[in-house]
Design a protein around this nucleic acid. Structure first.
Lengths: 237, 237
DNA sequence: GAAATAGTGTCTTTGAGACAATATATG
DNA sequence: CATATATTGTCTCAAAGACACTATTTC
């Protein structure tokens, strides 16, 4: 198939050869004791059989964030308004795709309790994998770099934003919220101090008035995400 | 001029029509009492006569950061190794360029004591303008959004990185470094506390052993940037 | 010496962290 | 009641902020 594109005036094609633009997503979820990322097994070349981040081409009239959002809902089955989605960084090394110039705008998504992953049209399989496993795998393209950027962004943002709640169900206990931090950061936090810090951060969480029964021990009060988006002072790692 | 591009297999052109990829730069410098940004006056359509951020097309085999670096040295006359340059965000709304689909990867640069701006090939003029003035101007494309993102990134990064030194000459006084913060943040800082905080942050600055004569008052010791890149704990705004 | 700017000392307040103590559930 | 988990209390320490004070220069 042949595509003819005519340029003139200031827009000389020598100045801007056709680029393909894609989005790739680092979709994270917390499944204690692991931070997990959604990977797909590529069905076609290049890197057929390799694990990769889910992604896709940006349509001619499609906004970048819409393309990312479509991939997110398609791959996870999660509605956009329950997930956090933000632009991460753009990867455009000339050599990153062996066949042609592809610039990829990476997005970071944080989701809670996703349904099991299902293979799509272009993927042989889709699977939630612990980030530690994904790091040990040879990912397609430069997706190892993208994954690192996404994980580091998520780790950093837990410090100074309320985004940890996007890894939680709509209603959660203080221990569940704390476990999000412990899982993403890979460290143990002091439960009493964490409890006080969260309640002392105005707008971080709101009490529901309900309690959640524990397998053992005193029932925990439940909370929902509050209106605040930033934590000042931050929650130290 | 006609460009023929052949696609097949997974790379169906219907999935990825030709995009142009550009870089746009938010190049900031501190000239007390103003934080200033380099703007160019567009010589050609669209937005001929409007002020815009400097930028350019990414070459077929050119890395994104190389394209940004080339624009930086071209427009400011500053060597890359003396400036800070980082990727900011990518802007790709289908409507952002009236003629065709252009995805712009924005970069943020911080420079010290730039020479006067000079018009280039594609610009009628180039000028350092206070950010407050630039905000009051109607900028070309979506450059108002890009500028906001750049300024906010710079303001935030002064808190938890040592990047304020990239706004300073190689050798600077504590008052000069403090003035960088005061100019970017638009607030006054307490000189004694600032002094202690900076010296207490290991690797932020290193003494040169020299002093700088003041117009009035006691000469100030001078410092150079140290090896540290992050400030923990941060310098509160 | 007066004025200006650089730099030090000290006190108060805030918040993080360690950890004891109390509360409320299950078996 | 023993045990487990949630929640509150208390003490200590580090750092931020206010601001008095000292140091060193020019005029």
């Amino acid at each position: 198939m042949i595509v003819n594109v005519t340029f003139n005036g200031e827009y000389n094609p020598a100045d801007f050869p056709p680029f393909a633009v894609t989005t790739d997503l680092v979709i994270l979820t917390v499944r204690p004791p692991s931070l997990e990322v959604l990977l797909v097994e590529r069905a076609e070349e290049p890197f057929a059989g390799s694990w990769a981040l889910p992604g896709g081409f940006v349509g001619p009239e499609q906004d970048l964030s819409d393309a990312a959002g479509a991939t997110l809902t398609d791959k996870t089955g999660i509605e956009l308004d329950t997930a956090h989605l933000e632009q991460l960084a753009t990867f455009g090394s000339p050599a990153r795709d062996p066949r042609m110039r592809v610039v990829s705008v990476a997005y970071l998504a944080m989701v809670a309790n996703p349904p099991p992953a299902a293979a799509g049209r272009d993927a042989a399989a889709a699977e939630w994998q612990p980030v530690s496993s994904a790091r040990a795998t040879t990912l397609a393209f430069d997706h190892a770099d993208v994954l690192e950027a996404g994980v580091e962004r998520a780790r950093a943002k837990l410090e100074y934003t309320t985004l940890a709640t996007s890894f939680c169900a709509p209603e959660f206990t203080m221990a569940e919220l704390r476990t999000v931090y412990e899982t993403v950061w890979g460290i143990a936090l002091d439960p009493p101090n964490f409890h006080r810090k969260v309640l002392g951060s105005a707008g971080f969480v709101e009490p529901t008035g309900r309690t959640a029964t524990q397998a053992k021990g005193r029932p925990a009060k439940t909370y929902r995400a509050g209106p605040a988006t930033t934590l000042t002072p931050p929650l130290a790692r």
